[in-house]
Amino acid sequence: MKAVITTVGKDRVGILAMMANACADNQINILDVSQTILDGIFTMTMVVDTEKLSVPLADFAAYLQQLGEKNGLVIRLMNKEIFDSMHRV
């Protein structure tokens, strides 16, 4: 399954590295990354493959949420289907 992970928050060193590690630790393959920094606000969207994910998806989503809260970021995982259904006919 493909999912989109978005990370939003104040820019600082190491956000991308932290997210990449979180994915690697859970056997998540990053397919695509895009990031922008606007007025000091860091926004990153990642498309990932969760096929080999070592834990249930809901647990990983909850883990990312907590990781965000700990680091002053809003991190969310969303099944990619939701964007496909909204923006593609």
Binding site: L31, T36, V47, M78
Partner: peptide, 14 residues
């Protein structure tokens, strides 16, 4: 961003 645009992802999140 693969076949999705970042703007579309952010629109949904907003």
């Amino acid at each position: 961003m693969s076949d999705l645009r970042t703007s579309e992802i952010l629109e949904t999140i907003e």
